[in-house]
């Protein structure tokens, strides 16, 4: 089962911990903010996380200084 990492850009301050922990999933823009490398339906704030990256994603959620990240189980779980 794939998980989804949600970036709450209203909280994020672009400190770049998550882009270090998940370099294959996230890009960092010039202002420091993370962006999904592969957009799902044009949405770059919800990132599909395969099991191989699950632990790194959990660490990012835990360490994000702004508590701007969350993990959910299914892709369609957000923002209905």
């Amino acid at each position: 089962m794939s998980e989804t990492l949600h970036i709450d850009w209203t909280r994020c301050d672009g400190r770049g911990l998550c882009t270090e922990l998940l370099p294959t999933l996230l890009d960092r823009d010039d202002w420091g903010y993370p962006l999904a490398k592969r957009a799902t339906n044009g949405d770059r704030s919800n990132v599909a996380v395969r099991p191989a990256h699950s632990e790194a994603a959990r660490e990012a959620v835990y360490l994000c200084p702004k508590m701007a990240l969350s993990l959910a189980n299914q892709v369609a779980g957000f923002g209905q």
Binding site: D13, R15, G16, L17, E20, A60, L63, P65
Partner: peptide, 12 residues
């Protein structure tokens, strides 16, 4: 808080 790494030590 500055968001900077420390030489080779990453931010996290």
């Amino acid at each position: 808080r500055s968001g900077r790494p420390l030489l080779v030590v990453p931010r996290f």
